[in-house]
Amino acid sequence: MNDLNFHHLRYFQTVAHDGNLTRAAERLNVSQSAVSTQIRQLEERLGQKLFERRGRSLILTEAGQIALDHADAIFTTGDETREYAARANVRPAPGAAGRITGDSLPKFSDWISPAPPRP
């Protein structure tokens, strides 16, 4: 399978929760065509239609609901990881915010493996 990226998932998640491509594009501060392209690419990579059109609304297909559940879990985990890092006073290296590289994985595993400190 070709690579997925966070743009595919974030754009899909936003449209799925809004149910409307135009509103989602406005919330994401991108063009409607950019959102449409990302969703089309995600559908191609997954080999599944994620939405059905009903009038001006987009309704999730069964595959779309499964994909949304996974996207929500991925972004929730990312938010929790950032929150834990903030509590542990872990700061990303300059220029590395939002990226995990091979060099950062050992450091990442060092601060998520131990149990959190007790209050």
Results as ranks from 00 to 15, higher is better:
Phe51Asn: 08
Asn29Leu: 14
Ala71Cys: 02
Arg99Ser: 11
Gly19Asn: 05
Asn20Ile: 00
Ala86Cys: 09
Ser36Cys: 15
Pro106Ile: 08
Thr77Val: 00
Thr61Leu: 07
Arg45Gln: 11
Gly78Ser: 07
Gln41Leu: 14
Leu46Ala: 00
Pro94Met: 03
Gly47Phe: 04
Glu44Pro: 14
Arg99Cys: 10
Gln48Gly: 04
Ala71Thr: 04
Pro116Asp: 02
Ser104Gly: 12
Glu52Tyr: 05
Asn89Arg: 07
Arg82Lys: 12
Thr81Tyr: 10
Glu80Tyr: 06
Leu68Cys: 05
Glu52Cys: 07
Arg99Gln: 11
Phe51Trp: 06
Pro92Val: 07
Asn29Ser: 14
Glu62Met: 11
Gly47Leu: 04
Ala34Pro: 11
Asp79Ala: 00
Gly19Ile: 02
Asp3Arg: 14
Thr77His: 02
Asp103Met: 10
Phe108Thr: 11
Glu43Ala: 09
Ala88Asp: 07
Arg118Phe: 15
Gly98Trp: 07
Phe75Met: 09
Ile74Tyr: 08
Asp79Thr: 05
Asn20Pro: 10
Lys107Asn: 13
Thr61Asn: 01
Pro116Phe: 04
Pro92Asn: 07
Asp3Gly: 15
Pro94Val: 06
Ile39Trp: 11
Gly95Arg: 01
Gln38Pro: 15
Pro117Gly: 03
Gln38Ser: 15
Leu58Cys: 02
Glu80Pro: 12
Arg54Gly: 08
Thr37Gln: 15
Ala88Gln: 08
Asn5Trp: 08
Arg53Gln: 07
Arg118Gly: 15
Ile74Lys: 02
Arg10Asp: 13
Thr77Lys: 00
Leu105Asn: 05
Asp72Pro: 12
Leu46Trp: 03
Val15His: 08
Val30Trp: 03
Thr77Ser: 05
His7Pro: 15
Leu68Thr: 06
Pro119Met: 10
Ser57Glu: 06
Gly47Pro: 03
Ile112Phe: 04
Ala93Phe: 06
Ala34Val: 10
Pro94Trp: 00
His8Ile: 11
Leu21Thr: 09
Glu62Cys: 11
His17Gly: 09
Asn20Phe: 04
Gln48Leu: 01
Asn29Met: 14
Ser33His: 13
Met1Ile: 12
Glu44Trp: 13
Ala96Gly: 06
Asp103Lys: 03
Pro114Ser: 01
Pro106Ala: 04
Arg40Leu: 06
Ser113Lys: 12
Ala97Thr: 00
Ala16Met: 10
Lys107Ala: 12
Arg99Thr: 08
Ala96Ser: 05
Phe75Trp: 00
Ala24Lys: 11
Leu60His: 01
Tyr84Asp: 09
Asn5Ser: 06
Arg91Tyr: 14
Gly55Cys: 04
Phe6Met: 10
Val30Gln: 01
Ala96Val: 09
Gln32Cys: 11
Leu21Glu: 08
Gln41Thr: 14
Pro92Ser: 02
Arg10Met: 12
Trp111Arg: 05
Phe75Glu: 04
Leu105Gln: 08
His17Tyr: 01
Ala63Phe: 04
Leu60Thr: 08
Ile39Ala: 10
Ala25Gln: 10
Phe6Cys: 04
Pro94Glu: 00
Arg53Asp: 04
Asn5Cys: 10
Thr37Asp: 15
Gly47Lys: 07
Phe12Ser: 09
Arg10Val: 09
Ala115Met: 09
Phe75Arg: 06
Gln48Met: 08
Arg118Glu: 14
Asp69Lys: 15
Ala85Gln: 04
Ala86Asp: 04
Glu26Leu: 05
Leu105Glu: 07
Tyr84Arg: 10
Leu28Ala: 00
Arg10Lys: 14
Val35Lys: 05
Gln13Trp: 13
Leu21Asn: 01
